[in-house]
Write a protein that binds this DNA or RNA. Structure first.
Lengths: 335, 335
DNA sequence: CTGTTAGCGCATTCAC
DNA sequence: GTGAATGCGCTAACAG
């Protein structure tokens, strides 16, 4: 058995209170301090966080629910978040929702059972109900990347609609008019980015035929199938805008397999998938989110909430985003 | 405050023991069962795992130390492992070692402080010292993918040397003689796979010039730089064997950027990177590990250890691996 | 099958 | 500055 605070009481002859106080940074007489330190050293004593948690009602653990852990987007976020939290002594309990809303609900309940101090979520669901159980128990929740309508919940995200509009304006600036969009049709980011797409198209006065609009699941397959369908169209679009990591990946896979070449036959502009910019020819144009900042802000907010030093009302942080230019968009007026 | 077992005692008039028993799956009278269930429902009662942990000395939490969480290899493993464990009611506390041995040591200590019931590791380090602290406390440890020499520790891995040999024999079967290898030079898998490479080359009687052997870090950059160097060689290899996910990725990136085309100018055979087989042309030959099986076995073993129903001596599971054929290897005698 | 009692290891009142 | 007592929420012995 590991040594407990009682063992060091025996060893030093001091009382539990004194020892506990020292451990938690309180002042004790120098000679007692030495005694305690010596005993700790000798017995390899380490605080039992479980016992401490029972009385403080804190676990120093934060739960994170991600829509799909295999997504590189989530992996990158986890990397940054995990490092920040661990520096502060917090553990990260991770739950993979596998793109399934029911699993997501269960995950939140599971985390609550684990008595996490706070919950970070990159959600699958587009309504807040899966987090109700957390709210009831006053467990702080911070949404990352995907906010939820009318949720009144802390959230860190990017200016989705704006950046999508800018990206499409870039395409339009290269004189594209027949632009298709592949996006997720259900969740927040997909919808917002689609709105941004339409903003730009409407402002330019361009129509979007129904078969140029490809809403669907947030997954590689949807990107793949949609791009395939677009390429088979009699009146092919001259440019395609893909609005997330997975969809970009799938669409590029379909393009690579096809007989068409980019940007000669078709121009593409993707989202988040920085990896691809180094992998395929030509270098892709890509909207890239500031992952580290996203992670840092989210960690910062959840810690503030846990320590109770944040204002009452929901904090919403919207980060600016930039577009990485490449060679995957051809100017139709050149050549 | 959340409801406790005492609240439901008040509500039902039953004793703590009866309620506890019911919660833990014991048999109680049907009428009491109904009373308890009703009270649980009404009070939104959920077990406080912390309190339970204090008395059972179990946290129902398993820690996992991964060499780099952003690696898709780890993401896939985490996906499978997390799902299995959560089904059994176990949480997964995740620690990213960021490819740094010192961080890895700290991570293990951190997990021990969190009193995890067991530790899974996909390690950075090639010696067991980072796990000593766990062993001292009798915390079960299972190594995944990368075993450690003389560690006498449970381990789930693949037949690295064999499958590498087979892969190289496939290249040799296509009449390649000038075969280069890019591998990680330090950790277990890199060394084993290199041995397999040499087994095949030696058996065939082919020499491996020093500049065809590219050991280095387990990272994208190493794959990229090495492939670039190989392509610039006066006497270029006709085939290149890449021995892990990251290196394969980097090498393919370099190849895509180069003036050479695959398999016309050079043949390649990669490892683990199934994603790539769908992304680049031509379809790549790839050794692919049975990720799900790897995860399942590891989860199974750690749970057995925790429940104390595993034999004393270390369990070592070696899974068979197959090679996915593609078109990235040209038969030198054809055309 | 049920109730009573006693801790798990620690932090936190209070007195002193 | 220190020590004795109390309880966090639960499980595990018992005895009934």
């Amino acid at each position: 058995m590991a040594a407990t605070i009682r063992d060091i009481k025996e060893k030093t002859g001091l009382s539990l209170a004194t020892i506990s106080k020292y451990i938690n940074g309180g002042h004790v007489l120098p000679e007692n301090k030495e005694k305690i330190e010596a005993a700790i050293e000798e017995l390899h004593y380490e605080v039992n966080e479980i016992a401490r948690g029972l009385v403080t009602n804190k676990t120093k653990t934060i739960g994170i629910v991600v829509f799909r852990i295999e997504s590189l987007f989530n992996g990158t976020l986890l990397h940054y978040i995990g490092n920040i939290l661990r520096e502060k002594g917090y553990g990260l309990l991770i739950c993979d929702s596998c793109d399934d809303e029911q699993i997501e609900v269960d995950n939140v309940k599971f985390l609550i059972g684990k008595k996490v101090d706070g919950i970070l979520a990159i959600p699958v669901s587009d309504n807040f109900s899966f987090l109700e159980s957390a709210r009831q128990r006053n467990i702080p929740v911070v949404l990352i990347d995907r906010s939820i309508k009318d949720a009144a919940c802390d959230c860190v995200k990017i200016d989705n609609r704006n950046v999508a509009r800018q990206a499409v304006e870039y395409l339009i600036g290269k004189h594209h008019e027949k632009i298709a969009v592949i996006c997720s049709g259900k969740e927040y980011t997909g919808i917002e980015r689609y709105k941004g797409f339409m903003d730009a198209m409407n402002a330019a006065g361009y129509k979007v035929p129904e078969n140029y609009y490809k809403p669907g699941m947030h997954c590689v397959e949807h990107g793949y199938e949609s791009m395939k369908a677009l390429l088979e169209l009699e009146e092919r679009p001259t440019a395609v805008f893909m609005t997330n990591y997975e969809i970009t990946l799938g669409a590029v896979m379909a393009l690579q397999e096809s007989k068409y070449s980019c940007p000669k036959d078709i121009s593409v502009l993707g989202f988040d998938n920085l990896l691809l910019t180094h992998l395929v020819e030509p270098r892709m144009c890509m909207v890239v989110q500031p992952m580290q900042e996203l992670a840092e802000k989210a960690a910062e907010i959840i810690l503030q909430r846990i320590e109770g030093k944040a204002e009452e009302k929901p904090i919403e942080i919207v980060l600016n985003t930039q577009m990485a230019e490449g060679d995957s968009v051809r100017d139709l007026w050149e050549n």
